[in-house]
Design a protein around this nucleic acid. Structure first.
Lengths: 342, 342
DNA sequence: TTGAAAGCGCTAACAT
DNA sequence: ATGTTAGCGCTTTCAA
């Protein structure tokens, strides 16, 4: 590797270098980047020419220190490999980028302590804003953020006491709506298959309450730690069948905490020669891209993840710009998507 | 939001603040963080006490400027929502984090021009290293990186002329191995279903050549732009069936550029009452987590993505530490995983 | 073991 | 429209 810039010495190119070449002072070079309209076209030309010839790239860490604007946002999600979260980050990052922000992404692994540690690490870079997943954080974490007076958006959930702003939907409401939809379809026996993250757990509880309120026996529950997978779904169905979910005498349905789980159940049903929805109704959660392409197409609860990222980006930027009277609690809702599996 | 630190004024807490409280000079506070062994235990205690009471978090942007070590790595992948790439980043980020590095992740959307733009943006933060996907970059991009003399690791592919280091495997070799495996199983009619990224395209070509070399008719090819999905797989099978892939007179198999595609084909086959592998052999690529849990379990080519991230992290850190004689080309290989779909 | 002094590369007043 | 002057909050010599 050799240096491409035609600088005689191996000196790094700085604004001072450009200034020397263009025959101006260093702050003028700074203006060329930050307030080009304040310079005469000729000066601007000379500077940009020097920039081109040297391959100069402004040093944002120095700029950030001087201006106290890092132009960085930190985002902490439970898992970067889970499309549920990465799709949100994708939209979020694309939008804030148009406003000149970069995103530093971190993964907490569904662990509040790790999340607190990551917030501390992030704070060291002096981000201008923070995106957090969920509304359940460690007290220390919350204290740190409030102490730093850092604009923060919490996504995927709604809270009566958000740290700053939250963008999400009612998990209780969504689960209740799912239960009522299934009830209206004549299902009388239920099971819930769920991961154990705080939001899935709340949906589980709300679903079970709605079933009980309708006077039906309590749903079978299968909970597992960590993330959803096809295997978790397949195993869950095996256990539910063994436990008699499909015994004669009722019309059975399973409510899953994610579409992936539902897909696993679908595969296991097929392997066992069970027909969905004839032998078993199935409802997913999330309406991931693949849900519509399953066979049978999956009935599920749609949450617009891209919208989540978009509203989060907008809300966070409003907070950063200290726009007065911006909303503190943004509800993006949910919708039952009726397809063929229930 | 209120400031948590017991600073009387609303002044931001800096090392100078801590120094004042602890009764030492500011550089001594710096030493407390970077070379604690050089301080007397009592001084260290006083400083750490002040840190705790104020909630002080060191400013890495100032530190980075002063030391010329940003402790940042930039990673550019085609898509952050594709687990193929995000799993690699996950491992990579976890490993480099142990060495005190954070990673700023960016998404190029399979576009070399966008990649070049992102490299330029990344360079502005003065990262200490760079992770790039693939070995096909725009000339300008390559020039920028070489000009900055930035330690760089290219992943997912092997190159005779890496920018710096590359970690990957032979796509030609993997596709040839897949073809030979299928040939040895008695398949005589083939199709390839593939995305159009550079690596998938090379596998497609190598696969077709191997089939031709065996004296069989050229495979049907279905290429599509962008990323793989179940829908792409389902549509591909529909077209292949319409085009007579399954007409009597031969034993047919499909080689896919990803497991997701294969899964889509599996679903479409099931919807059409076709049996895999009886009516049709099917081979995926990647051995994603779900491949083993499909029904039938998917025969595929395993690439150890986590290993890719691990070796990339190790290699990049060696380059950053300027370890002489470190490898330039790291082959992690591939392996045919025989399961039930072919 | 600690302090004093300089400087990293930039932005932001304030002058002119 | 441009130059001058001061920092931003650290790390890193070099002294003591």
């Amino acid at each position: 590797m050799r240096a491409a810039e035609p600088e005689p010495s191996g000196e790094p190119v700085t604004m001072a270098t450009i200034a020397r070449i263009a025959g101006v002072t260093q702050p003028t070079v700074s203006r060329a980047f930050n307030h080009p309209e304040k310079l005469s076209p000729e000066t601007l030309d000379k500077i940009m020419d020097a920039v081109r010839r040297t391959g100069y790239v402004p040093n944002m860490v120095a700029g950030g220190l001087a201006s106290n604007r890092s132009r960085m946002l930190a985002a902490i999600v439970p898992s970067i490999t889970n499309i549920i979260y990465s799709a949100l980050v994708q939209t979020f990052a694309a939008l804030v980028r148009e406003r000149g922000y970069q995103v530093m992404l971190m993964e907490s692994g569904f662990d509040a302590e790790e999340e607190a540690r990551l917030v501390r690490t992030a704070l060291a870079r002096r981000p201008e804003g923070l995106l957090l997943t969920g509304v359940d954080h460690s007290p220390a974490c919350r204290r740190m953020i409030e102490g730093a007076a850092l604009p923060t958006v919490e996504v995927w959930d709604l809270s009566a006491q958000p740290i700053d702003v939250c963008v999400g939907f009612s998990h209780d409401g969504a689960a209740r709506a799912a239960a009522e939809w299934l009830l209206a379809r004549g299902y009388t026996r239920f099971a819930v298959v769920s991961a154990d993250d705080p939001r899935a757990l709340r949906r589980r509880t709300a679903f079970c309450e709605a079933v009980a309120a309708a006077g039906h026996p309590p749903p079978d529950e299968i909970l597992f730690p960590g993330f959803a997978s096809l295997r978790r779904g397949r195993d869950a169905l095996s256990r539910l069948v063994a436990d008699g979910l499909l015994a004669p005498g009722g019309k059975s349905a399973i409510f899953c905490s994610s579409d992936v789980l539902a897909q696993g159940i679908l595969i296991e049903a097929q392997a066992r020669g069970l027909s969905v929805p004839r032998d078993l109704g199935l409802m997913g959660f999330g309406d991931q891209d693949f849900a519509v392409d399953l066979h049978p197409a999956l009935t599920t609860v749609r949450v617009d993840r891209s919208m989540l990222g978009q509203r989060a980006a907008e809300a966070l930027i409003l907070r950063i710009d200290a726009v007065a009277g911006s909303e503190r609690r943004i509800d993006i809702g949910y919708r039952i998507i009726e397809r063929d599996s229930a």
